[in-house]
Design a protein around this nucleic acid. Structure first.
Lengths: 215, 215
DNA sequence: TGTACATCAGTGAACGCGCGTTCACTGATGTAC
DNA sequence: TGTACATCAGTGAACGCGCGTTCACTGATGTAC
C-alpha cells in the first residue's frame, strides 16, 4: 500500500491511469491473473477502488490493457535481441532464445498474456506484431538460403508453439529433468525452422536417467 | 443440482467420494479449474458443502485427485490409440495425433492437468506414466531404425513440449489462422522425433495470407 | 481585486455475492444384551 | 423377542473474507464576471 500518494494536480488526472496499469503489472507478475483485482490494484496504488472507474470501465479492461502491454514488451525484447546479430540464422536462433528467456524472466506476465481465461476470439494486434517478428526471421532465412522452408508462416507457427510449450512447461514444472537448455532451443530452431546448417552438435546422451522424476 | 439423490446405505458412505470426483470432473471441463469449488461440487452432487470433508481434507486435495485422473485418462487414451498400429513410425504419429486430440476433446481438463496454479514441485507419477508412453514410442522407433535420434528422452521432451504448445494454443486461440492440422502434426513428429522417412509430403504454401488475423 | 461557481480528482459507506471452513446437531440403521 | 445404544451418513446455521460495483458526497483549484 502506497501511503505517500498525493492527489494529482488539476488536469493531470490521467496520470492515475498509468499508476493503475503499473500496479496491475506488478500484481500480475507476482500472483498471476487471479491476483489482478480492482481492490488489490487500489490497495497497491493507494487509492479507493471507486477511483479506478473513471479510467477503466471494469477489471477486464485493465487486464486487456495489461496483455497488450505484455505483447508489446515481448516484441521490443525480441527486436532488441535479434538486432545484436546480422547473420539470418544467428538472428533466428537468438530470437528463439530471447523468446524463452522472456517467458522465464516474467513467467506470470507471459502466462497472463497467453492465458486462456479471457476472450481470445478477437485477434489482438499486439500479439500479431510479436508473432510477425518470428515470421520475418524465418522469411529472412529462406531468402538467405539458410532455411529449406517453403512456408515461413507455417514454419513460424510450429516453431512458435514449440517455443511456447517449452517456455511454459520449463517455468511451471521445475521437477522435470529437463535436457540441456541450449540443445533443446537448437533442436526447435534447427528442426522446425528447417535450418540446413545446424551450428550446434546434436545431443548424444543415454536415455535412461531420471525418467521416474518426470513431473 | 441433483435433487434425486438418496442417502447412501450404511457402510457405503465411500460412494460419495466417487460422486464428488465425478462432479468435480464435470465442473473442471465446464468452467476450468476456477469453477471447481467446494460449494459448486456440493451443489452438483446434491449434498451440503460440509459433507465433503469426511472424504477430502480440503479443495486442493480434490483438484489433485482430479489431475491424477486426467493424466491416467490421457495415458489410457494414448495407449489405446497406439495399439491400433504395429509399425513403430505409425505408432508414434498416431500417438502424437491422439495427444492433441485428447486436449482438443477435453480442453479444460487438459488445461487443469497441466495448469500452473497448483504445486508442481513434487513429481506426479500419473504424469510420468503418460510421458513414458511417448518416450517408449520414440525408443521403439530408434530400435526399429526409423528414427535417427540418439536420445529418446530428450527427443520425447522436445516433441512433448511442441505437442503441448500446439494443443493449448490451438484450443485457446481459435482466431489464429492455423496451418493444416495433419501437416503440423507431421512436422512435429517427423522433425522432433527425427523420423528418417516422412510419409507425408512437406507443406508448400505461400506465406502471405491471413497473417494480420493472427491471434 | 473579490467572489461565486464550475470542475476536477478523488473519498467513503454500502450492497449482495460466493467462497472455505467451523461447530453442533439429526435421524436412520445395525448390534449387543 | 425387545430395547438401549453406538455408529454412520449426512444436515443446517453461522463465521469472516475479498470481491465488483453503486451511489452520494468532498474539498481543493481554477475561472468568469
Amino acid at each position: 500500500v502506497n501511503v505517500e500518494r498525493t492527489r494529482n494536480p488539476r488536469g493531470q488526472g490521467a496520470r492515475l491511469r498509468e499508476d493503475i496499469l503499473t500496479a496491475a503489472r506488478a500484481l500480475a507478475e507476482e500472483g498471476g491473473e487471479r491476483a489482478v483485482t480492482l481492490r488489490a490494484i487500489a490497495r497497491t496504488v493507494g487509492i479507493t477502488p471507486t477511483s479506478i472507474y473513471p479510467h477503466f470501465s471494469n477489471v477486464k479492461a485493465i487486464i486487456s490493457a495489461l496483455i497488450d502491454d505484455a505483447f508489446d514488451e515481448l516484441t521490443v525484447t525480441l527486436s532488441d535481441a535479434i538486432n545484436t546479430e546480422t547473420d539470418p540464422a544467428r538472428r533466428l536462433r537468438t530470437g528463439c532464445a530471447a523468446y524463452v528467456e522472456f517467458a522465464t524472466q516474467l513467467p506470470r506476465t507471459y502466462e497472463t498474456a497467453f492465458g486462456q481465461e479471457h476472450d481470445n476470439t478477437i485477434p489482438r494486434t499486439s500479439a500479431t506484431r510479436a508473432f510477425m517478428v518470428l515470421v520475418t526471421l524465418i522469411q529472412d532465412c529462406i531468402e538467405a538460403g539458410v532455411s529449406t522452408s517453403h512456408d515461413a508462416f507455417a514454419d513460424a507457427t510450429v516453431t512458435w508453439v514449440a517455443l511456447h510449450g517449452y517456455a511454459t512447461m520449463r517455468t511451471s514444472r521445475p521437477a522435470f529433468p529437463w535436457p540441456d537448455h541450449q540443445a533443446t532451443l537448437d533442436r526447435i530452431a534447427n528442426s522446425l525452422a528447417q535450418l540446413n546448417k545446424p551450428q550446434t552438435a546434436p545431443t548424444c546422451r543415454t536415455p535412461d536417467r531420471g525418467i521416474q522424476d518426470a513431473g
